[in-house]
């Protein structure tokens, strides 16, 4: 009722300030201060010899990066992380796909089994790591206890240089397979029933239906869970930190474990920032390649 009395000047001012900005301001401020600016600053720091406690931070250009590529320990971490990522992503996606296909229909039994396979996803890496560390313990662990029952002396899984990484990988797959299963189950519910019926009528057997109908229909979800698995595997840290601490003899040291060591134990922040940026570029490159492969398949 007062709008008629508002002078034109006020309306102009109201146009100039749009209250919509107030809604995005808090989030934008936080993203700016705690994400956007730190990204740029970490790039800047990676070009310096930036050690905590020293007064000056000398400009070294790409020095940290060139040092990094000659660094045996970093190359080892790259190899460990790469191997872990390939094996764990394949295990999670293929395992998740198998489970999703198998538990596709909803009955009380499949609902129960789905919950069981999904449950490790809910637990923290800290809990999971601590439990597995002692489950695999040569003296008190259940695994070697059971092996002992059948007359086999179990190895010390996490102290053996050949076994430590495969063991951590197995735990990684166990932890994440339920996630892929859930994403793929959701996608499977979206496969049109008439399409499947038509394929069945045309005489396609199970295997043919899977290859010709189901897999193409759930492609976006397969791609999504592959990218997510890859990106999270490349950032492997918690599990290694808790289970092995990177050992034995660096055999499970991942990129982020090494970053933590250089950055937060030795406080060489410039060098650690360079590691972070290499990781960032690696993640970017791998995701782009995966998306690219997916797209070129579409063109065929």
């Amino acid at each position: 009722m007062t709008t008629a009395t508002i002078p034109p000047a006020t309306t102009r001012r109201r146009q100039r300030f749009n209250s919509a900005y107030l809604y995005v301001a808090p989030s934008l401020l936080l993203i700016g201060v705690f994400i956007a600016e730190p990204i740029l600053r970490s790039g800047w720091m990676s070009l310096h010899d930036w050690t905590v406690g020293e007064d000056t931070h000398a400009w070294v250009g790409l020095g940290n990066y060139t040092e990094l590529f000659g660094d045996e320990r970093f190359r080892n971490a790259l190899g460990v992380t790469g191997l872990y990522t390939v094996v764990v992503t394949a295990g999670q996606v293929l395992g998740g796909l198998a489970l999703a296909l198998w538990l596709r229909r909803t009955t009380w039994l499949t609902a129960l089994l789905r919950s069981a396979f999904f449950f490790p996803t809910v637990a923290s890496f800290a809990v999971v790591g601590v439990v597995w560390k002692f489950l695999l313990d040569p003296q008190v662990g259940l695994i070697n206890g059971w092996l002992g029952e059948v007359g086999v002396t179990g190895p010390s899984w996490l102290a053996d240089t050949g076994l430590a990484l495969p063991t951590v990988m197995a735990v990684g797959i166990w932890k994440g397979v339920g996630f892929s299963m859930i994403v793929l189950l959701a996608a499977l519910q979206g496969v049109p029933v008439p399409l499947m019926e038509a394929a069945t009528l045309d005489g396609a057997n199970r295997w043919q239906r899977l290859r010709a109908v189901t897999l193409p229909e759930i492609r976006p979800a397969l791609l999504f869970t592959t990218v997510i698995s890859t990106v999270t595997s490349l950032q492997l840290f918690d599990l290694v930190y808790v289970m092995t601490g990177g050992g034995p003899l660096f055999h499970t040291e991942s990129i982020v474990t090494y970053l933590y060591q250089r950055g937060f134990v030795e406080f060489r922040l410039g060098y650690a920032s360079a590691i972070a940026w290499v990781l960032f570029l690696l993640i970017l490159a791998v995701s782009l390649i995966q998306l690219r492969i997916a797209r070129s398949d579409d063109d065929q």
Binding site: F34, I35, E37, P38, I39, R41, S42, M45, V231, L234, Q235, F237, V256, L259, G263, L269, A272, S273, A276, W277, L279, F280, I283, L284, S287
Partner: peptide, 11 residues
């Protein structure tokens, strides 16, 4: 797109 580890040192 940016992994958390990139920002953690400046933060």
């Amino acid at each position: 797109m940016v992994p958390f580890q990139v920002t953690i040192i400046p933060v």
